[in-house]
Design a protein around this nucleic acid. Structure first.
Lengths: 338, 338
DNA sequence: ATTTTCGCCTAAACCGGTTTCGATGTTGAG
DNA sequence: CTCAACATCGAAACCGGTTTAGGCGAAAAT
């Protein structure tokens, strides 16, 4: 059914090798022949088959994307979806397709690394994965080029959102608005969380506020329910905070819900901030104060790093890209009188 | 680097063919030999390479996913993301990976069909695509098994959300709440839109309400801005509707915004409904009245249909699956006094 | 004892390309 | 006129599997 290199070679009256060389711009093919081959190929709709090419060259022009699908929401996760979307379009510009790497395929479970070899991916990008698992680090330390997002492995390229600075900026913003009792709700253990907590403490320190252990609360990312509970917990304190920084916008929605239930007006009675800058945050009343991550640039940068490592294995060094965040003032942090 | 069938055959002292056959459960391999092969494979971590297998068998265990990435938000589109997520996990259960099909890869543009052949996908699922384009229908009428979601091609399997019934149900709900001036805002031209408009008219007809052309407004899917404008347009009418049905939840958010700007309370002054049932709709005040589409089941069903066509090319017939929707009452449609 | 049948395994072709190496004809230098 | 250099092209090996056709020894049938 599909048209192969044989069809082209037959139609041109040339050998298969010559056609292949013409397509790969070998220097020992005359300009006319090359032209003839290309014209004929276009005529009969020939494209070299990726599978066959891969088998011989071991270059699939296929990149793996690894994320933890164990969590309830994989592709639905808005941060991940945005990064992925951008990563994907950059890859396509360079002629790469993408494939999801997982360990639940059909048979007896393959590991991530095995899945990568099974599909001959040229490289792999890891986002929102469980970076502490042995399976992930096995892949990270393998010979397969890889880039990580929001986590740094030794000697591997990575793209980091400036989480530390982001939270710092947010705390300062709250401080400038007159808040002194600023609580921080953090997500699950991860590099991101660690950086954000560090940012929180660093900001408090800078502003000469004494950290209180009851103002540091644990919750889950992307979970309104969990955010709801964290908010309740904080508001029940004998001395509740006047401003609460949530792990992300979705959990902030849970916090807003909790505030509403407690008959607390936002931001008059209590201030709340999110993180991520999802579109819907700006459609709320009050508009959500939040930190916008530049997901578009993160995905693009990751793709560029990865492709660079693949196409220039010698010269390419592992790079670390820091992508700046941006504070979106919104209206959910109120000005407090001194 | 990677371990191949040769390594297994060498270690077992068997020929390559025997190893291959042992792996593919050929009957002319003794139980002991088969056992030996499998054990050795497990020991040295061998998995048959998908690329090599595909080349010979023309079965890639790879499925294409086609969606229109021309729109601004591809993977970010919440309906699409949900369907895809479910489709993907069902595929993985059956040992299939997925690849995105597009026509922007590297070179001179391949068509969708060419991309499918280029990657040897076993089948392709089309969602949120431009079903009216020649390129898409070329693929749909090719010999590659395919399944569509929310659009029916002749003689091809498809999964349809019950859009007609969904809208009908929504109109009836509004009617039962006392509304008589019910406007319908629809999205871009597509089967979905056509079905929904039909559902709208059919419901009006059933309820003996006379349709008014000024109550049928055009907007865009997934666009708060567009929803905002549509809402303004409707509210400026000399005789504005008391209830507005929006194309989806996101555009409903735009409509809510417009209402707020016009100092209209929802639902006291005007009622608004969405479509899709996104999580955030239920976190608003008032909670959004909407129709929940069973995206999970849609994705799963599509995968099952597609895999069935692939694995049983003889017996499989094109099937049409209708996935029921569910009304989520919410609070954004008010009871109106007769 | 000879032939048939069977059970088990291997050799080799093949999938659709890429790439090495050599063949051929042409040209330029000596 | 001879020989080297160059420009073009093709034959064949190869990538890692699958699959067909056939080989070989042992058991069963004649």
């Amino acid at each position: 059914m599909a048209v192969t290199i044989k069809d082209v070679s037959a139609k041109c009256g040339l050998s298969i090798s010559t056609v292949s060389k013409a397509f790969n711009n070998y220097s020992d093919i005359s300009a006319e022949t090359r032209e003839l081959v290309h014209r004929t190929a276009r005529e009969i709709g020939y494209y070299p088959n990726a599978i066959a090419r891969t088998l011989k060259t071991n270059r699939s022009y296929n990149l793996g994307v690894l994320y933890s699908d164990d969590g309830q929401n994989g592709l639905t996760h808005s941060f991940f979806a945005q990064v992925l979307d951008s990563f994907k379009s950059e890859c396509e510009k360079h002629g790469y397709d993408i494939t999801f790497i997982n360990h639940n395929v059909g048979w007896t479970g393959m590991t991530y690394l095995e899945h990568c070899r099974y599909r001959n991916v040229d490289g792999v990008c890891m986002v929102c994965a469980d970076f502490y698992s042995t399976e992930v680090s096995e892949l990270a330390t393998s010979d397969i080029p890889c880039v990580t997002i929001d986590h740094a492995f030794n000697n591997r390229s990575c793209v980091m959102s400036e989480n530390l600075q982001g939270v710092q900026q947010l705390v300062r913003y709250a401080y400038d608005k007159g808040h002194r009792k600023i609580a921080f709700v953090h997500g699950q253990r991860s590099s991101v969380t660690e950086n954000r907590i560090t940012g929180y403490y660093r900001a408090l320190n800078e502003l000469e506020l004494t950290p209180r252990s009851d103002y540091l609360v644990s919750a889950l990312y992307d979970s309104p329910t969990s955010g709801y509970q964290a908010m309740l917990q904080l508001m029940k304190l004998p001395e509740p905070p006047t401003c609460v920084l949530m792990p992300d916008d979705h959990s902030a929605l849970g916090a807003l819900e909790a505030a509403a239930e407690l008959k607390l007006r936002v931001p008059e009675d209590v201030s709340i901030a999110g993180y991520d800058g999802i579109r819907l945050g700006q459609m709320l009343h009050p508009k959500l104060t939040t930190i916008k991550q530049d997901t578009k640039r993160m995905g693009m940068q990751a793709a560029l790093y990865l492709i660079d490592r693949i196409e220039n294995p010698r010269t390419a060094v592992s790079e670390v890209g820091c992508i700046p965040t941006k504070l979106i003032p919104g209206e959910s942090i109120a000005q407090v009188k001194g």
